[in-house]
């Protein structure tokens, strides 16, 4: 079934300038690779502020933006869209390793 992608909860994300890795803004204003440490905005007003903070902290990252997330009962968050899930979790298949000669 189609999901509502408008999401009330949002985190700020970007790609790290030096290596392009996906990062999220934490509550201390640091960029982290861990989604579970991302600062969560719980309404639009806070989300706007979060994005402003992300832009203000963008010296080491590229083009911060907001990502809609959902939160389960235990406080775990997950992006709503498949695209952002893939950004947060990585490839959805196993890439071949440098020394591999057969694809497993």
């Amino acid at each position: 079934m189609a999901k509502n992608l408008s999401g009330d909860l949002q985190v700020a994300s970007a790609n790290r300038l030096a290596d392009g890795m996906v990062v999220f803004l934490d509550a201390a204003g640091q960029w982290t690779e861990r989604l579970d440490r991302a600062d969560i905005a719980r309404n639009k007003q806070v989300a706007d502020i979060l994005l402003e903070r992300a832009r203000a902290e963008s010296f080491t990252v590229v083009d911060p933006f907001l990502v809609a997330v959902i939160e389960d009962e235990e406080g775990r968050i997950e992006p709503l869209s498949l695209r952002e899930k893939i950004r947060a979790s990585g490839l959805t298949f196993a890439a071949i390793a440098a020394e591999a000669v057969r694809y497993a």
């Binding site: 298949f93 890439a95 071949i96 390793a97 440098a98 020394e99 591999a100 000669v101 694809y103």
Partner: peptide, 9 residues
């Protein structure tokens, strides 16, 4: 994955 090759390959 079509078109992928490892360094060893």
């Amino acid at each position: 994955p079509p078109g992928d090759a490892s360094a060893a390959q």
